[in-house]
Write a protein that binds this DNA or RNA. Structure first.
Lengths: 160, 160
DNA sequence: GATGAAAGCTTTTCCCC
DNA sequence: GGGGAAAAGCTTTCATC
C-alpha cells in the first residue's frame, strides 16, 4: 500500500462511480495498473464493499436516536439474547459494546419519537435491560463513511 | 416509490456492484425500466451517493471512540468555531447535536488510545469545552449503512 | 410503462516492456 | 510494477408496442 493506493481510496470512499479512466488519471497511471491496484485492495479486504448510501429523510427515517444501555447481567446467555434481538431489528443500524458506565450504545434510524418508542418496547420485551436512556439527534453536523487514511502507511502488527 | 423500488434499494444498500441485468431479474423487470427506476431514485436524492466502505482495521484505525461533549457556551460564535474545528478533523467521522444532558456526540476512528488523546488535545485547543467524556468501543456488534425501508411507503409531509 | 435490440462506454484480459 | 490494445461485458439509448 502506497500513496497512490491511498489516493484511490480517498476518491472511492467519496464516490465509487468515478470511471476507471478518470481514477487512473488522478493517480498518474494508465487504466490497467490502476485497475490492478483496486483489485488488490478488494482482495486484501481494504475495500470491504461497494454500496449506495440513501437519504434518511427521503426514506422517512429522519430521526437518529442514540440509546445507552446498562445491564446487570454480564453472562454469556444474556449477551447472546441481547445481540440477536438487537441486531435483528432493522431500525437499529449500529451496536457497540463500550467500556465504562455504559455497556452498549445503539444508533437507530426512525421516523419519529413515537416510532422510536415502538422499537424501544420491542427491544425491552425481548431482553431484560437494567437501565436504558436515549438521546435524540437535533442536528446531524457530520455523517461520513470516509475513514482517515493518515495512519494506513504506518508499520503495525499484522499489516499486509 | 413502490415495492420494486424498495427491493432495489434493499439490494443496492448492501451491494452496489450488482449488474443491472441481475437487479432487473430480482424485481421481475427488464433492464431498461429497472435502469430508469434507479435513475429516478438518484435524481430524487433517495440514493444520495455510491461509495466504497473500507475496513477500519486494515486502514490502521481499528478503534472507535465516542466522545460526549457538554458546553456552557450556547452562542452562535462558539458553535461555529466548534463545528468548523471538529468537522475538519478527519478522525472525527460523525458529529451530532443532541437533546438532553449531552450537547454533542462525536464518533472517531483512530489507531489506538494514544492517537485518540492526540485528537482530543487538538480539539480542546481549538475550542473551549465544558465537559468531555469518552467511551471506547470494545466490540463492534453491528455497523451498517443500511437504513430501514419499512417506513418509506408511508404518506408523510413533503413526500415525493 | 414495458420490451428487445443496437450503440456507446467501461471494465477486464492479454501480451509486451 | 507499468503500459497499450483487443476482447468482453455492462449501461444507456432508441424504436416499438
Amino acid at each position: 500500500m502506497d500513496k497512490k493506493d491511498l489516493k484511490l481510496l480517498e476518491i472511492l470512499q467519496r464516490d465509487a462511480s468515478v470511471p476507471l479512466a478518470q481514477l487512473a488519471q488522478e493517480v498518474n497511471l494508465s487504466p490497467t495498473p490502476c485497475w490492478r491496484r483496486i483489485q488488490k485492495l478488494q482482495e486484501a479486504g481494504v475495500i470491504a464493499r461497494q454500496v449506495v448510501l440513501c437519504d434518511a429523510g427521503k426514506l422517512n427515517v429522519p430521526l437518529t436516536v442514540f440509546v445507552s444501555i446498562r445491564t446487570s447481567q454480564h453472562n454469556e446467555a444474556w449477551t447472546r439474547r441481547f445481540v440477536e434481538a438487537a441486531a435483528g431489528i432493522p431500525e437499529i443500524v449500529e451496536i457497540y459494546r463500550l467500556n465504562g458506565e455504559i455497556d452498549y450504545l445503539l444508533k437507530l434510524a426512525v421516523p419519529d419519537i413515537a416510532r422510536y418508542d415502538a422499537v424501544y418496547k420491542r427491544l425491552i420485551q425481548s431482553v431484560e435491560l437494567a437501565d436504558v436512556s436515549s438521546a435524540f439527534a437535533m442536528e446531524v453536523i457530520k455523517s461520513s463513511t470516509v475513514l482517515p487514511l493518515d495512519y494506513a502507511l504506518e508499520r503495525r502488527q499484522g499489516a499486509a
